[in-house]
């Protein structure tokens, strides 16, 4: 399985004029947003700003109300789109980990590889072990999720997503459900990923991480992108009043 990685001039994620409403509530009001191959984009903003909804629309966990989303040039919002195939190119990491509690760590990592990628048991296991090693949990192969700490569970979740050999990774507030002392280990894994050139879209409240690892920071508020740019600019000398106020609040 060789997925196209970084086609020339084609963004990994290209969101065009995206609208999303829940009933009468408009959560996204015309978003234009893209992530280039190899780029790490951190999306920040107050809760309720629509940043998680944007991320969830990208792999169609939420159905957009209007607009287009291209994954490496392929329209995932098109009625005929092979959504399962497109999703398998996007690794997704959730705030609440969402490991499969009835399966061992190894099976968590192999089940989709075997089913979706059609890999053999041996191959899937080998890839799983390699990715567990990558997140520093090779000794937890046979453990069950409930026996792991939150930080370990999230690292397993990252390894699970990586085992699909995705072209890009999306993180939906990956450290928000963690005890403070466990945040570091997860961020360290993400930092390594970024260093290895992984394309990443990260919705986060960790400003230090965005500053250090992000190639670009996008600030969202009330369903629109207020401003974006390099972290040094957006986080230290924001142009907009709303960004300034938000940054003051999160300290």
């Amino acid at each position: 399985m060789t997925a196209p990685t970084g086609r020339e001039g084609v963004p990994a994620i290209d969101v065009q004029e995206l609208y999303k409403s829940f009933g009468d509530l408009e959560v996204l009001s015309g978003i234009d947003f893209h992530v280039d191959p190899g780029e790490v984009v951190c999306v920040i903003g107050p809760s309720g700003s629509g940043k998680s909804t944007l991320l969830r629309c990208v792999n169609r966990l939420e159905e957009p109300t209007a607009g287009r989303i291209l994954i490496e040039g392929d329209d995932i919002t098109h009625p005929d789109a092979n959504v399962d195939e497109l999703r398998s190119r996007i690794g997704m990491v959730f705030q609440s980990f969402n490991l499969f509690p009835h399966l061992s760590v190894l099976r968590n990592l192999t089940i989709a590889q075997r089913r979706v990628r059609g890999r053999s048991k041996t191959e899937a296991r080998e890839i799983a072990r390699r990715n567990l090693d990558r997140v520093g949990l090779s000794d937890k192969v046979d453990a069950y999720p409930s026996h792991l700490s939150g930080g370990q569970q999230q690292r397993v979740a990252i390894a699970r997503a990586l085992s699909m050999d995705p072209d890009m990774m999306m993180f939906d507030e990956p450290t928000s459900a963690l005890d403070p002392e466990l945040v570091g280990e997860v961020l360290a894994v993400m930092r390594d990923l970024a260093r290895d050139g992984m394309t990443m879209m990260v919705v986060t409240h960790e400003m230090a991480f965005a500053q250090e690892v992000g190639d670009r920071v996008v600030f969202m508020d009330a369903g629109v992108v207020v401003e974006e740019g390099p972290p040094s600019q957006v986080l230290t000398e924001p142009k907009h009043e709303r960004t300034r106020r938000f940054l003051q609040m999160v300290g």
Binding site: D84, F94, S96, F100
Partner: peptide
Amino acid sequence: VPKGQMEAARSLGMSYTWAMVSIIIPQ
């Protein structure tokens, strides 16, 4: 079964049916 289980399975590229059979129904 928590909604996140289906979301995680679908995010890995599993079909609805297969997610049901291997993830949701066993739980």
